[in-house]
Design a protein around this nucleic acid. Sequence first.
DNA 1: CCGCCGCCCTGCTTGC
DNA 2: TGCAAGCAGGGCGGCG
Length: 270
Amino acid sequence: MPELPEVETIARGLRGLIVGRRVANVHIGLRKMAIAPPGVNFRRALRGEEICDVGRRGKYAIIELGSGRALVTSLRMTGRLIFQRTQRRPHPYTHIRLDFEDGSRLCFADSRQFGRMRLIERGEPWAADLGIEPLSLAFTPQRFIGMLSGRRVPVKVFLLDQRRIAGIGNIYACEALWEARIRPTTQAKALTKPAVRRLHTALIDVLNRAIEMRGTSVDDYVDADGLRGGFQNELSVYGRHGEGCVRCGRPLVRTVLAQRGTWWCKRCQR
DNA sequence: CCGCCGCCCTGCTTGC
DNA sequence: TGCAAGCAGGGCGGCG
């Protein structure tokens, strides 16, 4: 499932592949996945648009267009943005396809159909509810301490809340909590200052290392060229219940927290 | 404002 | 071996 490092990898790849290309036509196979403002036709609005840039905010990939509009794409669990240089068979489960004037194209594929591609008007504040970017300079230990104070939710649930910090999903929440030696169920407000500092460091560290490895491919994730990431080989806890903790040797456990699988070490994480 | 729940979907895993 | 049931899970809307 694409989280911050995976979307960052996709966005960086796409930037080199589609910037400067112009949209000739748009194919929509599944209407609900293509969202436009009221009164705006998704297909027509995109025709003739030039791709200016590709970026990321949280888990969203942002395709900037010449008119100032943008295509904000949420990949959810199984969504893929795949660039094709030539017109061969579209990627499996392609539901939206941008055909460029030079014959290349961008496939938005999603076997589970949860992904969304939203057309945003120039200046439209689509990210108003999104929290802070964990890799931005604004995300300081002080700020993090302030965000957690008074919050009764388990710290892992806090990490998954996109309105607080944007971009962290199940994999990196589990990994960062293990790295910081914090129990996932600990109430956010109950964390000591040293623990919050460890978690702050761990989050930034694990996200940066994952970006360096071009993301985690445990399941469906591939980059814009269809290539898998490498961080699945570096995971310490995610999906590894029954295996020994690499720090203390005790078998890792899988529990469920807020309806999500949670992998952790009962000895190391307190 | 906060927290919780159910829904959307389908490929894969599990269990008989 | 084959089949059906159940699970997974990010974002969102609804509810209390």
